[in-house]
Amino acid sequence: MTQFRPSRRDFLSASAATMVAAGAGTRARAAGSLVATTYPGSWEAAHRSILVPAFTKATGAGVSLQTVQALEAITKITASRDNPPFDVVILDEGPYLAALDLDIFAPMPPSKVKNLAEVPERFIDPNGYGAFVSAQILGIVYNPAKIKTPPTSWLDLWKPEYKGRVGITGLASSLGTAWLVEIAKLHGGSEANLEPGFEAINKLLPNVGAVAPNPGALATLFQQGQIDISFNYLNSVLPLASRGVDIAIAKPDSGWVLIRNSMHVIKNTANYDLACEYIDTALSTEVQGKMASAPNYLASTNKQVPFQSELAKVAKDNEALSHLTLIDWKTINPIRSALIERFNRDVRI
């Protein structure tokens, strides 16, 4: 919700949303400070309380954190390449790979980011444009107060007893797209053949109680009692559970799904060295250890950080983590806007 910044009455800016993107690049910024993106929710909280203070302590520079979803961050950068609105961005695998063709990233040599040495090979970007700082773990989310037997399969969402109790979100997010891929696979499809997934979603519609406009809103629907079963990331669910919300996450029998999150330095940034140091700090054992503990549970990609408590239930270490189901984003990316369009037609009324 935080990304809907245009004022309500500002009719022109709302009707010309692309102009908002164009204007973003002209934002003035203070010297010796970095502009970095983060995701809304637990990411922002963790970055603000852990990563930013550690970075400021190490370098003396300040950080202006902006909550921007991956696809939107890329759009805003391409709108203003010469004077990019951000120095560092956080992205999901899919949008990152799609953006490789756009030539918006600055190379990031290991000499600039010493902590890359602590990251196992499967979490290092083979293109040399960034580093995977975490990975989100996708599972079945349910309300343990209403659903006594934990669900075991994605197909449980189709059970007739959950009529009007299921929550989903659209395909502009990695969350919704990865889930669609898993559903398609369960019905004989794949990344290249998502038709079975769409057919299954159409059959799910009588059960759907709410379609969240974005992944952040999907988790809060449990808080409002609007839905009882859905899908989401471990790191979105556990912070809510620790605050007393009736919400829990279960492993689907088809396996946890992993969506890797990467940080990148943007080409033409005026703060190249600071930006590299920011990513270096994000990979440090200290920051990764704090991000991975309660209440955020953002999985670590640093070998030195042991997997504890809730994360240990998913994988014993980050080597095991890296072997969870990965989605083939290279196949998805070319058809991404067609998927968004198809979801508009099938689900939105």
Binding site: V211, E341, R348
Partner: peptide, 22 residues
């Protein structure tokens, strides 16, 4: 917020096509 993700109106449609579908 009140309409949810299922009701699609022009502003969200523009936002979606411009910023998400690029």
């Amino acid at each position: 917020i009140v309409g949810g993700g299922r009701l699609l109106f022009m502003p969200l449609y523009i936002y979606q096509q411009g910023l998400q579908a690029q």
